[in-house]
Write a protein that binds this DNA or RNA. Sequence first.
DNA 1: GTGAAAGCGCTAACAT
DNA 2: ATGTTAGCGCTTTCAC
Lengths: 323, 323
Amino acid sequence: MNIYDIAQAAGVSTATVSRVLSGSDKVSPQTREKVQSIIDKNGFVPNAFAQGLGLGSIKLIGLLCTDVSDAFFAKAVSSIEQQLRQYDLAAVLCCTGEELSGKKQSLELLLSKKVDAIILIGSPMGAGNENSHLVEAAKQCPLIGLNLHLDIPGFYGVLSDQEQAMRENVAHLQKAGCNKIAYFYDGDSPANQAKLVGYRKAAKDFDERLLVQTKKDLDAAMEAADSLFDDCPFDGILASEDILAIGAYKAMAARGLSLPTIGFNNSVVARCATPSLTSMENMLDSLCTIAVTQLVDVLNGKNVPRKISIACHLVERETFRLT
Amino acid sequence: MNIYDIAQAAGVSTATVSRVLSGSDKVSPQTREKVQSIIDKNGFVPNAFAQGLGLGSIKLIGLLCTDVSDAFFAKAVSSIEQQLRQYDLAAVLCCTGEELSGKKQSLELLLSKKVDAIILIGSPMGAGNENSHLVEAAKQCPLIGLNLHLDIPGFYGVLSDQEQAMRENVAHLQKAGCNKIAYFYDGDSPANQAKLVGYRKAAKDFDERLLVQTKKDLDAAMEAADSLFDDCPFDGILASEDILAIGAYKAMAARGLSLPTIGFNNSVVARCATPSLTSMENMLDSLCTIAVTQLVDVLNGKNVPRKISIACHLVERETFRLT
DNA sequence: GTGAAAGCGCTAACAT
DNA sequence: ATGTTAGCGCTTTCAC
């Protein structure tokens, strides 16, 4: 069943069928109705490949993230996919892993499928110095960074202001009397670097041992907190990720301590933890909405800002109260 | 840059370039090398649309789930996507929501993109009686159900045996002396129905009030547990989902009670909870691996079983120990 | 082993 | 308002 069959059955040319399909107004109502009825009756759906071949677009957007099983990225993917649908765009998802080779391979895959644009979800997608593959990709289609910005032509970043957020976290804990605030983080992605800068700027004088890097894993965080405390006791807990904060808190709770603790991302686990975790809301939903809007605007050739930054805010729960 | 350019630069015909591209053995080593070098030098990637037009396939697999921001589905998507990559297949993801209209729309979208097959992730994708859209879809491409099976031609199901798993949960709690086991569940998807059947079969005589349906949400579970306990006190907790078990446990903990509790799915939150939650492992990874294997076999025209079922097993943590 | 050419299904410029 | 037709880029028979 193709456009020729429909044309023949309706006694018109393929051009007319194509016009009906695309909703062109240069078709008489009678003709339109007749053609449409035949299309409907046969359940005809135009072949996307053929359309793509001619138009150079198949209305597919690539989504790249290191790992969708991570709650933060999963929420982002979910939100973005929903937004895209409103513009009649579908999402091709690739989970790249942390390795550069995986990232390159996924990028190739998306490019070979001729996606109309690619959204890089999460700062880890831009980690490392070797970004030449992104420079090349950006020449072929627009790149949108979610919580990531790179200074590359064709790259558009939408981020939450994590440096500022972490400065606030430190200030909050300090106001509560903490002056030895442990900070647990899980990697050196651009976002984590920004958070670290925030900590450093706000904490001013502090023992470097208070900064500890660990795997993004509950047990790892518990162990890290435990050994840190032996080495260099602390009186407050911050983290780049909720799960690290929970781990550290748990380790201290096991020692009978209940330290002021603030997580980051305000993910589901923050509410599940006992006591529930105060956490910095990263405004993921807004980020996603704006990212898709940007994308659509770029695709439509509008002139859009290269970088958009939005503010986070604290969600108070049991592990720390402002007042 | 297309196949003609390459052919011209290499002084051969497009047919030869095509053969090199597809790794045909009917090309002399010298010619192959020459063509390949030009392909590499120019970073030429064949146009997927044109390939698709001719071959009728663009090596795209549709992934359908109600919501990737759900941890269970997110893990599944992540795992499947990774598996698919090994077969050089890409994943188009659509989150449908719970509504039938959303499911139909997403299905249409995938079909219009000419995906080679569709994986329905999670039992909710088959909820409800109206499955005519799936019957139609199955005529166009193979449908694989993950934790879902429907008796439709062209449908292949891969599931964990949740009825049996829930029977075991009940038996465990009974052995620990519980005889009024509350069961919290969050909907009537086929999977939840199977679990409920498992509970009923194993619990035999029990107060119907012990079965309570609630939203898949921590607070909702807490409230549900609280009011149930007032109405009909219980001495053990089971649930269709970890988060419900955690909510119920929390509510009881607030009353100073520490009831034997077993969750379901063995998700991240089970470990984050305090005390950590004993939970039934749903074998998601195996499910995904097998599903993709099935898919590839079907695509290759092999004769595969219509339904595969695998056993779950308990992961013991603090809220309940077997011995 | 290699080339010529038809064909995959659709769109859009051009003609009527 | 409608029809004709030339591509879009690749694969694949069929000759040689």
